[in-house]
Design a binder for these strands. Structure first.
Lengths: 327, 327
DNA sequence: CGCCACTATGACAACGTTGTCCGCGAATGG
DNA sequence: CCATTCGCGGACAACGTTGTCATAGTGGCG
């Protein structure tokens, strides 16, 4: 800005006036300044501007589990979209389900003075955010609730979803319904297990513990678990899978086998309708999740100081065939 | 920091020394300062720090087409990963194939003084970046080259890929091979068309213009185009699709029809192996693309000032069945 | 006992910008 | 023709940090 001022033969303040469209600059002077800006390729330093004005940095921090997961990338897109409408940029970071990494990212974002934080929690302890929240940084938790702080939260109806999945299978005659879920310390995994259990009881199927497989999963362990289940004297005739990744692993393990069990998967995914049989899923809307969380965050930024809210988004069962196989 | 200093009864500079682990602070003093920091929930302002130190902002700007596209979210993840290793945060923005939006995002990132830019170009004009590049901001273009500036670029072997796709189909007896691509002003779409053409000539099939459908595509228009092609007196017996989205639309349009043409799709995608028939694709590695671009960018940040490089990543045909259908 | 070396701390400027206030010259009215 | 006002431009401080340098205090040694 100094260089621009020198080149245009004006004071630095006049340059500032020009770049900020402030009144009180002679058109000819403004012209000279603009020419100088152009010639030097000047671009004002937003950090310095925000520092001086005490205004916001115009950024939102978004800590999620993994951008590469289609579900979260859908959420990211929605967050980006709503932030754009509100003139903010989004900084993202993947925690990979590691609480330390989540914390590191969130605090790094705070040091950058983001206007707000969206967090898909990896851990259960969020006390580290209390100073930030007290200092006025709004925080909204997505997909999973915070461990030990009271804050805005947007969830999906995990329990309702798996209850419905079990009911759907039971209605088609299944009595041996297995559940393959993620590690039980993950909130959503645990909730979905609860829904499964409740669904089993409500549908009169009865909860059978030997049909539940929880744990961190890769393709190999899912295949092994499935193999074990199918070796039972009375093998399950239907499966409920706890998230999109597990569903895909299961599909891969089942490919080419005979007597395939019925299947309902949590999370919708592309091409589910084109598989044979098409996969019945508990669908929920990634972009709705992102939008709801963003709306909540921006409401806080607009000064909404009502008590923290908890929003639970509905899920819906999309019957496509794999869940309608008769037992 | 002022408040912390007051509370700890020291000067602001001493606080600075403590938070920066500078030597020369009495342990007892440091203790008092840390206690004050804790009590006040102080977190140093990174913007101010960077401003004063003249150091980098520790951020990388990444302009892509759409984070929600699995291909780009894979790239994003790789970019994030390599940035993390180098202590940088990533700011992303989706251009939605709109050159104005691309420019807006890139310049916004520059105003934020990102250390470097990764851009999946939407437009063909990048002169607007010249001042930034001259000012020392390294820029790497991904997936598509820049329109009118010389800069580091990472591409995939689009031509080689479609040449191979056509050869594969021709080897299985196909003589009427159609190509469904994206709008021809998109670099990759055009390259892939060129590869298709070259493949047709080289394989002795001959280039037949009536079998080419280019244009911005949605599900409906793809279905219509396909319907038209299949109504020909001599309909194509095989298809090459220009990207993952088009492939999916084609699959959906073909679902349930008889006499399905053979198919090779550009871009690999999840579950391609589980469809029936499994889909043969030209695969290339999203994370390799992100990593290569990131490596190039960080090399520049490390002071590499060699002439701009153009890296072309290999693709490989993954035969899964849909391309091996005999004509 | 005096001086020096060294340690711990602080005062001050500066990063790039903008808000406040002041001054200068011209225009306008009496 | 002079006084008042208004339009335009500039000097200066401040945002929250950190680098530079100065200074006060302490202990050791001659």
């Amino acid at each position: 800005m100094n260089d621009v001022a020198r080149l245009a033969g004006v004071s630095i303040k006049t340059v500032s006036r020009v770049v900020n469209d402030e009144p009180g600059v002679h058109p000819a002077t403004a012209e000279r300044v603009l020419a100088a800006i152009d010639q030097l390729g000047f671009r004002r330093n937003l950090s310095a501007r925000n520092l001086r004005r005490g205004s916001s940095t115009g950024t939102i921090g978004f800590v999620l589990e993994d951008v590469a997961n289609p579900f979260y990338s859908g959420v990211t897109r929605a967050v980006e979209e709503i932030s754009r409408l509100r003139g903010r940029q989004v900084i993202t970071g993947s925690s990979d389900e590691d609480p330390a990494r989540e914390r590191e990212l969130a605090l790094e974002f705070c040091s950058r003075r983001v206007d707000g934080l969206l967090i898909v929690p990896a851990g259960l302890q969020h006390g580290y955010l209390v100073p930030e929240m007290r200092a006025g940084t709004p925080v909204v938790f997505l997909d999973r609730p915070a461990g030990d702080v009271v804050a805005d939260t947007v969830l999906v109806d995990n329990i309702g979803g798996t209850v419905e999945a079990v009911a759907h299978l039971a209605a088609h005659g299944h009595r041996r319904i297995a559940f393959l879920g993620d590690a039980p310390d993950i909130f959503t995994a645990n909730e979905r297990l609860r829904g499964y259990r409740e669904g089993c009881v409500r549908s009169g199927v009865g909860y059978q513990e030997d049909l539940v497989v929880m744990g961190p999963h890769d393709e190999r362990s899912i295949a092994a678990a499935l193999h074990r289940l199918r070796g039972f004297r009375e093998p399950p005739t239907a499966l409920v899978t706890g998230n999109n990744r597990i569903t895909v692993y299961v599909l891969r393990a089942l490919a080419g086998t005979v007597d395939r069990p019925a299947l309902v998967g949590f999370d919708d995914f592309e091409l589910a309708d084109l598989l044979s049989p098409p996969v019945t899923v508990i669908a929920h809307d990634a972009s709705a999740l992102g939008k709801a969380a963003g709306d909540l965050l921006f409401a806080r930024l607009d000064g909404d100081s009502s008590p923290p809210r908890r929003v639970v988004l509905p899920v819906r069962l999309v019957p496509r065939g794999s869940g309608e196989v008769r037992a």
